[in-house]
Simulated scan of single mutants.
Amino acid sequence: MKAIRVHEPGELDMLKVEEVASPQMKSGHIRIGVRACGINFADILIVKGLYQEKPPLPFTPGGEVAGEVLEVAPDVKGIKPGDRVMSMIGTGGLAEEALVAADMALPIPKSVSFEAAAAFSVAYGTSHVALAHRAGLKSGETLLVHGAAGGVGLTAVEIGKLMGATVIAVASTREKLDVAKSKGADHLINSKTENLRERVKEITNGRGADVIYDPVGGASFDQSLRCIAFEGRIIVIGFASGTIPQIPANLLLVKNILVVGLYWGSYAKKRPEILMGSMHQLMTWLGEGKITPHISHAEPLSNAVEALRALEERRSTGKVVVTMGAD
C-alpha cells in the first residue's frame, strides 16, 4: 500500500509517499481502506518531533481517518467488511490502509461524506469536551473564541451556539471572520485592527466574557485575562502562536478566574467514557445536520505535504483533509 513515512523528525518537505506493507491485523482491531484523513496541527508537531507523544520510527502520521472496513479480527463483533466507519488512531492515517481499534470506530451517518467524517472527531470532540465538560458553558453566557476560523476554533463557535451561548469570534482577517459568522458567531473582532479588551467590554456592557476558548496562547491569552468576567473560565487548548503564556496569579485572584487545560487525546486512556459520551452526542448532531464540518483544503495523498503546509502556514479555515480515492 502507499503511505507517507517519517524516518526521522524533520521538516515537512522531507515527507514522501512510499510503498509499505499493510499493517498486521491485531486482536480487537479492524482494517479499513482509508478514504480520507483529517489533518491536525498535532500531525505537524509529530513529524517535527515536537509533540508530547513521540511514536517509534519509522511511522506514518495522521490520526483521524474515515473509510470502509476491509477486514475484522475474529474477536470483534458488530462490525463487518463494507461498513463505513470513522476513528481516531494517533498515527497511521496518511495511508491507503489503517488498523483501527474496534472500540474506537464509529459508524458514519449515510448523509455524511468520508471527507466530512475525517474532519470531524478531533476538532468537534476537542471543543465539545472543552465547553461542556471542562468549562461548564451555560445557555445565556458569553463565549469568546480565539482563532475562530481555525480547525478547533470554528467548531467552538458552532457548538457554543448550539449550547445557547452568545459567541464572540476573534480572528486575524475579514475573510476568516466571515467564515466564523457563517457558523453562527454573534459578534466579530479583528485581532489585527481592533482592541480586544475594549471591544469585549463594549459588547458585554462592561461585564466581560464568561468563557474564553484559547487555542492560540501568547498575547491572546494575556488579553483574555483583561476582558474576562468575574468568575470567568479560560480554556487553554493549545499554543498556535508558538508562545506558552505565563499566568500572573494575582489576576486570577482578583476576579476569581478559573483557568483550565484541555488535552483531548488523554481522555482516550484516562476517561474514555467522557470522550465517547461526547462523541455520541456530536454524532447525533452531525446526523441531524445541526453541525457540519467546514473543509477549506482537500488534497490527494500524493500532495499530502501541501495539505500539511496549508495548515502550518495558516492558509486554511476549518479543516484540511487528505483523500485516498473518490468519495
Rank of each mutant, 00 (worst) to 15 (best):
P9F: 14
A3Y: 03
S182F: 01
K80T: 15
S241H: 06
Y213D: 04
L94Q: 14
L15E: 06
G232M: 11
L258D: 15
G150I: 10
G93C: 10
V321P: 00
L275A: 15
I108A: 06
G125W: 02
V34W: 00
E312Q: 14
L15I: 06
E53N: 12
G265Q: 08
K80M: 13
F114Q: 02
G184C: 10
A116N: 11
K161T: 11
E231S: 15
S27Y: 01
E273A: 11
E299C: 13
G164S: 08
W285F: 10
Q223A: 15
I203P: 00
M86S: 06
I234Q: 02
L251Q: 14
G164F: 08
D327Y: 01
L12D: 05
A310W: 09
S111Y: 04
L251Y: 10
Q24Y: 03
F230N: 14
L143M: 04
A310S: 15
W264Y: 15
K201F: 14
G261K: 11
I46W: 05
E175I: 13
V47R: 05
S182G: 04
F41N: 00
A304D: 07
A156R: 00
A249V: 15
L45P: 05
P23W: 06
Y124Q: 04
A123C: 08
P107L: 06
N205G: 12
P293I: 02
A268W: 12
G28H: 07
I44P: 10
A123G: 05
R31C: 09
D327S: 10
C37F: 02
A219G: 11
A249G: 12
I274E: 08
N250W: 09
I39D: 02
I235D: 03
P55Q: 03
A42G: 10
Y267V: 05
G78S: 08
V152T: 13
V17W: 00
Y124C: 04
F41Y: 11
I44W: 07
W285H: 07
E96H: 13
H128Q: 06
I291P: 01
F230T: 15
Y213E: 03
G217A: 06
V216D: 02
L50E: 15
E19W: 00
V85Q: 01
V305K: 09
M14D: 05
P109K: 07
E158Q: 15
A307R: 01
A73R: 01
I79G: 08
M163Y: 07
G151L: 02
K161L: 12
L70K: 10
R207V: 14
L196Y: 12
S27L: 07
I79Y: 06
I46C: 13
G33D: 08
L144W: 00
F114G: 03
G38D: 02
G218E: 08
L196W: 09
N190H: 08
V69W: 08
A185V: 09
L251G: 01
P300Q: 05
A95F: 06
G242N: 11
L45E: 13
A73W: 03
T142C: 12
A240D: 09
G217S: 04
Q246N: 12
Y51M: 12
A180E: 05
G277S: 02
G62N: 01
P56R: 10
Y51I: 13
R233A: 12
G140Q: 10
V260H: 11
M86W: 03
V85S: 03
G125I: 03
G90S: 10
